[in-house]
Every structure is written in structure tokens, then in C-alpha cells.
Design a binder for these strands. Structure first.
Lengths: 122, 122
DNA sequence: CGATTGCTTAGCCATTGCGCTAACTATTCA
DNA sequence: TGAATAGTTAGCGCAATGGCTAAGCAATCG
């Protein structure tokens, strides 16, 4: 349940960069070599490689080398961790919304009694 | 469409830290003051405040000060951006899986032509 | 009133992140 | 074999991150 926590650090970190998200997006369309992936970006290849490594280190992609060409593929399952986190988070505040509704009802009852001004905005 | 991109940088960045995720988790159970939120952590308050500011700057929480107490609340809608990104990504590789299946079928056809070492005849 | 509480500001410091160039290795091509 | 191709390694520089202490301030308490 909470074991994913440490993985989430790296996964979210990896997703926090537009270059890396673009790579994932491209790989969504199918496997590609380093050169193909790098081509749309203006940065130097070694810089780009760091992004690839980070994605691989965090399990978001897998790579394999054939001859002098390294081919990257998306590791789809990895994003499930993000999905799980989101679900868990949502479950929390949905449960809480239920409780909140109870308070709202209570507040409405109060309003009946007091009737008047509440707080001055600002 | 892609306008969310810049926001995603910050949002994913904010989520890439366990302290901040824990804060969101706690706020999922309802609003809380800075002090209440900070209590489970061993770090100094100013350090903790940086996390709060980062969460607020990226729109994941909202805060309001009453007297000397600042109360934080979850900004649930903000996580929708993450959800949207995930959906878009998934849509991409699901569409691609369809195309992949076509290739697989094509490959099976090829096998028929080339060698009969498969289950060509059941 | 003065003391305490609950942040807040201001800085310092070590580490990490993300870009670069230069030079190197390992295929593959002519 | 020699030249081009596709990555790779090494190291540099600067900005951002995430922690700290010390000191400040406004609200509340005794």
C-alpha cells in the first residue's frame, strides 16, 4: 500500500520535466531510438541522454541496444503507481466530503437559529 | 490542450516530495493549521513552511490566516491536471496497441508464407 | 502589562538538476 | 581499411531544492 512511496518520489520527479513528458508521449506512439527521440529537441545529445537515463532509472521506459542503436520502449505499467496514488488521494477526500456534508447540514440548522452576519470579507 | 504543460511541471515537482504528499494526504481528511500539519515531521518549521508555500504556489492547496493561525485546505481540482495528463497518455498507447495488433496479425500471415514451424495447421 | 504562541523572514549551506563541450567507443558503410 | 554514424563518458557551471539557525512580529493568554 505505502510501499510505493519511495518509487513515487522518482516517478513524479521524472514527470516534472517537459522534455521527459514529451519523450513518454512520443514513446506512446511506439518504440524509438535515442536519435529519433532526441531529434525534436535543441539540446545536446549528452543532455538528452540524462533524461533518458532518468526515465529508465525510474522504470518509466526500458531500453535495449542492437548494434549501435539503442531502442526505447514505454513501460506502461509504471504509470499505474501514479494512478494508484491519485485514486487513494481521491478516496480520502471523497470520504471526507461525506462528513463535510453533515457539517453543512448542521450549519444550516445553526443559521436558522442565529440569522445574521457571519464574517467580514477581506 | 497543451496549455497545462507549464502547470504540470510545477504540479509534478510538488508531488515529488514525500513530505508534500503527506500534507496533501492529511488535508484530504480536512483543513488544518500549519502547526497541526507540521507536527508529524521532524524538520524545523521554516523548512516545513517552504513545502507549504510550494504547494500553495502550485495551486494544490489554499491557505487563509485567521488571527495568528493559518489554515490550509486542499485544492482538489488541481489534481485533475494530473488525471488529464494520465488519460491523454493512456489514450496514446491504447490507440497504438490497436495498431500493434495489426502488425501481429501481419506477422502471423508472414509465418504462414515462410516456414511451417508454427501452429499454422492448428 | 509581559510572556507565550504561531507563524514568518532572512540568511547560510550541501546536494541535485539540467544544460554545455570535448573527447572516446563501437558499429556500420564505402 | 578508413570515414561516417550512434551513443557514451567525463567534467564543468550555474540555478534550484531542501534542510538548518537566528531573529522578528502579531495575536492571544495570564
Amino acid at each position: 500500500m505505502e510501499h510505493y512511496s519511495s518509487q513515487l518520489n522518482g516517478i513524479f520527479q521524472a514527470l516534472a520535466d517537459p522534455t521527459r513528458r514529451a519523450v513518454l508521449r512520443q514513446l506512446g506512439r511506439g518504440p524509438a531510438s535515442i536519435g529519433e527521440l532526441a531529434q525534436p529537441f535543441e539540446m545536446a545529445l549528452p543532455s538528452f541522454m540524462k533524461h533518458i537515463h532518468l526515465l529508465e532509472d525510474n522504470g518509466l521506459i526500458r531500453t535495449r541496444k542492437h548494434g549501435r542503436v539503442r531502442t526505447c520502449t514505454l513501460e506502461k505499467a509504471r504509470l499505474a503507481a501514479v494512478d494508484d496514488w491519485l485514486s487513494e488521494q481521491r478516496a480520502l477526500w471523497e470520504a471526507r466530503t461525506d462528513r463535510l456534508e453533515q457539517f453543512v447540514i448542521a450549519d444550516l440548522d445553526k443559521d436558522k437559529d442565529m440569522d445574521g452576519n457571519k464574517e467580514t470579507s477581506k
